[in-house]
Design a binder for these strands. Structure first.
Lengths: 127, 127
DNA sequence: GGAAAATTTGCGAATGACTTGCAAATTTGT
DNA sequence: ACAAATTTGCAAGTCATTCGCAAATTTTCC
């Protein structure tokens, strides 16, 4: 595993919030080329050490957000996104496995991935 | 309501599958400028007559897909996307209202929108 | 440990979805 | 039908993300 790879993985692991490739590329302590960051995030996601979702918000546009995912403990996280302060709240795993299974049976398709997240106004921003 | 607007809304209503702005812009029977198509899709979504979601698939990249939504009957649809044949299956409304409410209570945030869809291989493509 | 093979990096340029400024055309209000 | 308001087409711009390629790093094998 290369230096860049390791550093990016550590940054992901250390971050409480999901981050974009650009955020990591601009992080002074990393200072890897954006292409390198993008490539390594892809790589880490393929390995199953990172997970991502695409979010569009009026203020930041459309971007892919990455978060850490333990190699084995592989919990698929879902998030709430506050449109005001742009912070994320980790909702944990969605627990829809049963529902998914029901759908697979009903329609006879095979689910390889699911996307789920919420947007709204967080507690702090409501006040 | 302008001619373009009406035509685009009709196209949406007529389409069984969610469509992208580009698909509509390239549709010979419509032949409106892409800017016009994009602007009107935004407009229709604001009105509540269209709904959309952003999907990334390896073959077609990242694009926003629109579908018709009756002005009042406003059912929020969710979809399964087949990665092979690129067709969508309408799953109807997700029926997670209770779960959402539970989350709102637990975290004290207000949900204004939710994104949910599945990807995988459809029945036909498995065979 | 070191040289060759394989992979990765940085840079700059390209891609592709989507947006925007602006003048001309259409629609609306009266 | 006329003036005001909105929308359209066009061309150029924006922005996240990707790609080609030569140089640098990592891995492999002896």
């Amino acid at each position: 595993m290369t230096k860049a790879r390791k550093a990016i993985l550590e940054a992901l692991k250390a971050s409480v919030q999901p981050v974009t490739a650009m955020m990591l590329a601009k992080e002074p302590s990393l200072s890897y080329d954006q292409a390198t960051v993008y490539r390594n995030l892809h790589y880490l996601e393929e390995l199953g050490m990172a997970q991502s979702f695409i979010l569009h918000c009026s203020e930041h546009g459309t971007e892919r957000y990455y978060s850490y995912r333990g190699a084995d403990s592989g919990i698929h996280h879902h998030w709430f996104h506050c449109e005001k302060c742009h912070r994320f709240i980790d909702l944990g795993s969605c627990g829809y496995d049963e529902q998914m299974h029901a759908w697979e049976k009903k329609w006879d398709f095979t689910i390889t991935d699911h996307t789920f997240f919420l947007t709204g106004i967080c507690s702090a921003c409501k006040a």
